[in-house]
Amino acid sequence: MAQHHDHGHGHDHDHHEEHEQLKVLGFWIFVVTDCVLFGTLFATYAVMMNSFAGGPTGQELFQLPGVIASTFILLTSSFTSGLAVLAMNKGNVKQLIAWLAVTGLLGLSFVVLEVTEFMHLMSEGATMATSGYWSAFYTLVGTHGLHVTLGLFWMTALIMQLKRRGISAVTRRKITNFSLYWHFLDVVWIFLFTVVYLMGVM
């Protein structure tokens, strides 16, 4: 690669558009791999479902009201991220940023609620090292929470880029991927809520 002549970017718009489409497809495939990752964690949880080793059970410790609240918060945030995409399609940057910010705040409250729940559980004597069940619980729920947290940082970066650059082929692709990611986390949470919490207190 001898010389790199920079040519500016104006002159091949189709090429860029095509390239951004390529990245959306790649992100879909990434989501597939993330599905497999969560699937493995769910399978692990299923195997460990009754491995309490004499320690506390989920039924004894779960406080459903808090979990139901965070479920609704996350569902709402998925809805608002959808509104953000609609705003983007209308070409309205301000609205887009506003809905993203709302999504972010909802996501943040979800994470805070989860951390509070974990602290409560640990104070009741259910830690990672208590039993196979709690190891699987913290790993599954925690991996989801970590995904949401990373999503918050990602969203922050995207808001900053939108402020600087507005809606372009590149930022449009980034928002598309982000909202895909966010909806995906929502779907995972539905399964998580059902399998871990509802079946846990049954």
Partner: peptide, 25 residues
């Protein structure tokens, strides 16, 4: 990725995924 992470949690955080005690398998 998950399998190695779980083994690491067993070793690092005292989890009980694959241990002989604590409900591991």
């Amino acid at each position: 990725t998950v399998t190695l992470a779980l083994l690491f949690l067993d070793r690092f955080a005292g989890a009980h995924f694959f241990t002989m005690d604590g409900g591991g398998n």
